[in-house]
Deep mutational scan, measured.
Amino acid sequence: MAAAAAAGAGPEMVRGQVFDVGPRYTNLSYIGEGAYGMVCSAYDNVNKVRVAIKKISPFEHQTYCQRTLREIKILLRFRHENIIGINDIIRAPTIEQMKDVYIVQDLMETDLYKLLKTQHLSNDHICYFLYQILRGLKYIHSANVLHRDLKPSNLLLNTTCDLKICDFGLARVADPDHDHTGFLTEYVATRWYRAPEIMLNSKGYTKSIDIWSVGCILAEMLSNRPIFPGKHYLDQLNHILGILGSPSQEDLNCIINLKARNYLLSLPHKNKVPWNRLFPNADSKALDLLDKMLTFNPHKRIEVEQALAHPYLEQYYDPSDEPIAEAPFKFDMELDDLPKEKLKELIFEETARFQPGYRS
């Protein structure tokens, strides 16, 4: 834990890192770190609560700039109880001085990944967590956004079992017609939660990839272990087919990539493993919904509104309290091709509203 900075004593240090967030945020305490930044909790002297502050230093890398800009653009436009918001952003007053960006968010005690390492969940908890994931996802999908990296560590939890989806750095506007060349190379989302079509096709992607990830998360809540822990690309596919069985001819016809289709045709026939054999203690309604989410063919996979209306979630289902976005989200430009200098300018502009004396 960093010592509390005395008023006016300059930035606090946390594990050798400068955290320049005073005077409003003090009493910093280390939480963890990701690929390009550290997260601390801090005391907000204005709202009198502890908050989470993520320090991001992305400006050396085009990919990190892209992810940072995506996350900020999306989260500043989203407003939903099951999606983490941005409360404040701290950065230098000029673009030349801006080396880091500090993002202030609600402090959540833990995440689903940490929880599943230590606790076996009751059916009631599984049901409530799944409902909140789908409630947040309904809003995301209504904005025409794909999260693309749903996994237990991106689901934040607090002691009252509130759940918030975080990390929109890989999110995209849904565009089933656009052929994202190089899709697989830039697709760094965790393999275990990846839909089979991501490994088999490169053309376009749809909201059904997020539903697949939610199915993987439900299976993990039922058993405290990942359902498809593939060691590499082909191993991942083999794990999936080992449980779902061989795809039907109709399902194979959806695979545009001939090499991928021929690979699947070359494999020995596998039978589907019954879900109640894998999860003998699970609620039968939970397994019915799991089956509809972990469907090989993305066109037959359940959609988020149908999933919310499934009998497993009937005690929570309330369409009048499951809000959607006001308007579909649009990125003005494809960020993939922009140089990091341009992305830095866009991050600077996007964060201006939090600067003292800002006038829109």
Rank of each mutant, 00 (worst) to 15 (best):
S202C: 01
D337W: 15
T181W: 06
D283V: 02
S202K: 06
I347S: 01
I227N: 02
H80W: 15
L76I: 15
L156C: 07
N262F: 13
M333L: 00
F78I: 00
A327V: 08
E250S: 14
V273G: 14
I103V: 09
L313A: 05
H178Q: 02
H232A: 04
K259Y: 04
K342A: 12
E109H: 09
K114D: 09
D177M: 09
P226R: 02
N201R: 07
I211F: 00
R77L: 00
D106A: 12
E186Q: 11
F129M: 10
R277Y: 12
Y43A: 13
D179G: 10
G16R: 01
H178D: 04
R67Y: 12
L278H: 13
I31H: 13
M98W: 14
H80R: 12
I53Q: 12
R15P: 04
S223R: 06
V173T: 05
I217M: 09
H180N: 00
D100F: 13
M108G: 10
P226C: 06
R172E: 02
R67G: 09
N158K: 00
G242H: 07
G230A: 10
D336H: 12
D111N: 01
H239M: 10
K164P: 02
L308D: 05
R225H: 04
D88G: 13
A35G: 05
Q17T: 12
H125C: 04
A6Y: 15
L308V: 14
E250I: 14
P152Y: 05
E341W: 15
Y358G: 11
C40N: 15
D336N: 02
F129R: 05
G8T: 12
E186H: 06
Q315P: 13
I74A: 05
I89V: 05
D318T: 15
S284N: 12
L264T: 09
V46P: 13
L343I: 12
P339E: 04
K151F: 02
I103Q: 06
N47F: 07
K259R: 05
K340P: 08
A5I: 14
A219F: 02
V188P: 07
A42S: 02
M108N: 12
F331N: 11
I126H: 08
H180L: 00
P196H: 00
L112I: 11
I56H: 02
A171R: 03
L116W: 10
A92D: 04
N224Q: 05
N158F: 08
F296I: 00
G242E: 11
D88F: 15
T118R: 08
D177R: 07
V49S: 12
E81R: 11
C254Q: 11
G34K: 06
H141F: 11
A307T: 05
K272P: 13
T94R: 06
K231M: 01
D88I: 15
S41C: 06
K270D: 10
T206I: 02
S213D: 02
A3D: 04
T63F: 06
L218G: 01
Q355Y: 15
Y193E: 01
N281W: 11
V188R: 01
K300L: 10
R194Y: 02
L146A: 05
I72E: 06
D332F: 14
L121I: 06
R148K: 02
E303D: 01
H232Y: 08
I302T: 11
G215L: 02
S213I: 02
M98Y: 10
L107E: 10
Y317F: 00
I31P: 07
L313N: 09
D318E: 02
Y36Q: 15
G136A: 14
I209H: 02
E322W: 15
T206C: 02
L346V: 10
L121V: 09
D210N: 02
V104G: 08
V39M: 02
P268A: 10
Q249L: 01
L338I: 08
L69T: 10
I133T: 13
M38Q: 09
N123L: 09
H178S: 05
L294G: 04
A52G: 13
D175P: 11
N87P: 12
L346I: 11
L287Y: 08
D332Y: 00
E350K: 01
D162Q: 15
Y312D: 03
R191A: 03
D235S: 07
D291I: 07
D251W: 05
D332N: 01
Q119F: 09
I126L: 05
G22Q: 11
G245Y: 05
F348I: 01
A219E: 00
A9H: 13
K55C: 07
A143M: 12
T160W: 08
K48G: 03
V104M: 09
R50V: 09
I217Y: 03
D177Q: 08
G16A: 09
S122D: 13
A195D: 00
D179N: 02
W212V: 01
T63G: 09
I95S: 10
Q17G: 12
P247A: 03
A260C: 14
Y102S: 06
S29R: 01
Y263M: 07
C254N: 10
P339K: 05
K48N: 00
R15D: 09
F19W: 13
V101R: 04
D167A: 00
I126C: 07
A9I: 13
P274M: 07
M333Q: 13
A195Y: 07
G136S: 12
N144L: 06
L237I: 10
L222F: 08
I126Y: 08
L116K: 12
E60I: 15
Q62L: 01
K99P: 04
T118C: 10
K48C: 08
E350R: 15
D321E: 05
A327H: 15
Y233P: 03
T185K: 02
A282G: 15
G182H: 04
V273R: 14
I227Y: 06
V46D: 00
S57R: 12
M98T: 12
Q306W: 15
Q132H: 00
D88E: 01
V46Q: 13
Q306S: 14
N253K: 03
A282Y: 14
Y205V: 01
E349D: 00
W192Q: 02
H125N: 00
L265C: 08
Q355G: 11
G204E: 02
A195G: 07
